[in-house]
Each structure stands twice: as structure tokens, then as C-alpha cells.
Design a protein around this nucleic acid. Sequence first.
DNA 1: CGGGATCCCGATAGATACTG
DNA 2: CAGTATCTATCGGGATCCCG
Lengths: 131, 131
Amino acid sequence: MATTTAAQRREQARVEYDAFVRNCPTNQLLDRISDKWVSLVVCALAEGRMRYSDLGRKIAGVSPKMLTQTLRSLERDGLLTRTVTPAVPVRVDYELTPLGTSLFHLLGAVKDWAEAHIEQVNEARDQYDAS
Amino acid sequence: MATTTAAQRREQARVEYDAFVRNCPTNQLLDRISDKWVSLVVCALAEGRMRYSDLGRKIAGVSPKMLTQTLRSLERDGLLTRTVTPAVPVRVDYELTPLGTSLFHLLGAVKDWAEAHIEQVNEARDQYDAS
DNA sequence: CGGGATCCCGATAGATACTG
DNA sequence: CAGTATCTATCGGGATCCCG
């Protein structure tokens, strides 16, 4: 007899679905841009290249660890470039690639939707909480 | 003398910036749509109203807890409606509101960007990993 | 200046079991 | 059928220290 079929089949479905979701480009992108610091970094760099410490200052509250981690993953995905200028002390600049700029424009669309509809959402929320 | 000024001022900045980020509509929206299950639920409901268990089946791998949690928060934000039909057994339907449908369209834009650029991202990633 | 390495903690997802 | 309650393991993220 087949044992624990229910649980196993559920687990099976979960694994398959997880794989599907991870392979879905849309969800990959959502995972990326939803990172707390990504949108802030992209937004900051949209104005032009910037040094590591300038970014850290502009995005107040980010820890060095998270800033580096965020920059590395964005660099890996080809969204920005990292330029090291050997000097004393070392100078490192970050700059959006065309792909990164393109992503910034998408973020613009998200921003537009947010600003256009945030009122409705807040109203709905207040109404829901009141009842 | 002022003690731990550096740490305290950093903490202060962090708190202020956190508040700013949370109040930013764009980040609120990003937080919302980046939730692992939100996009899946919105996408599923885009085809029309659906029952709780149908959603659970369509979105294989979601636990009842997370499904309920997701649906509640979306309802709270006015993105979908919850309709209870008293019968035996009870029947509960979920359906996108116009606002929810509008959000679905935004997700479409995200999807378009993702599908158009995922190749570039993957290439950049492979190249980065190779070096 | 621009990080890497390590430790640690709170939040949270999910499994499981139960209920009206 | 449509959830709720509880418990646990994991893990992202920050603090801290150190290096080139």
C-alpha cells in the first residue's frame, strides 16, 4: 500500500510549484526589485555615478554589509558597473548600465501607479479597520 | 560629555529613514506586490472570481495559513472582495475589485519588462560568475 | 576608503492539528 | 468548506571587528 500519499503528494506539488515560481521571470524580477535597498540604490544612481560612501550617506540607515551585498547583486545582474580607481585612498564608483536605467524606468511606472492609487488603498484600509 | 554619539546618531538616522521609506508610496507598493503569494493570487483572480479552495488548488504549495493571510491583506487594501454565501457547506468567493484589476495591469508591465530583459540579466550573471 | 568575516537575534513562513 | 491556533526552524539583516 502507498504510505503517506497525501502528505507526500502535497510536498511534491509544493516542490514543483516552487521550482516553477522561481523560474518565472516575473517573480525573479519581483524578488529583485522588492529588495528593501535595491529600489533606493537604483533611484540614487539614476542621477549619475556615485561613490560607495556617497551612496551610504544618501541612503541613510543602510549598513555597509547590506550596501555591499546589494551593489554586488546588482552588478552581477548587469544593472550597474563598479569602477575601481587605484589611488590613495582607493576610489570606487558605481554607475547604472543601460539595463539598469531601463529598470529605473520600470520603477517609474510602479511609482506612478503607487502615487495614483495609494489614496484609494489607504481609504479602503481605514474603512476595513473601522469595521 | 555626549556618550556613544556615533552609534546613537546612526541609529537615529536609521529610524528616520525607515519611517521615510515606509511612508513612501512606491516602497509600500513594492512591499505589497513582492510578497511571494500576492502576485500569484492576483494573477489567478484576474481570470475571474474564485473560491477559497479553488485558489488553494490553483496555487499549489500555499498553506491555508498563508493563503488566508494574503487574501485578508489584499481585501484590507481594497484589491479584492470577499463574498460569503451562507449554505451548507459555506461558500466563499474572492474577486478582484477594479483597483485590483488595475494592479494586475501594472503587474503586466512588470511581466513585460521581465520577459524582455531576463535574457540580458542571465547573460550578465553567467559572465559574472565565470570571472 | 571600501569592504570581508563572523556572530547573533527577531521576525516570519510553513507544517500540523483542530474547529464552526 | 473555509478557515484558526500553535509551534518550530530558518534566515535575513544588523552589529561588530578586522583587513588591504
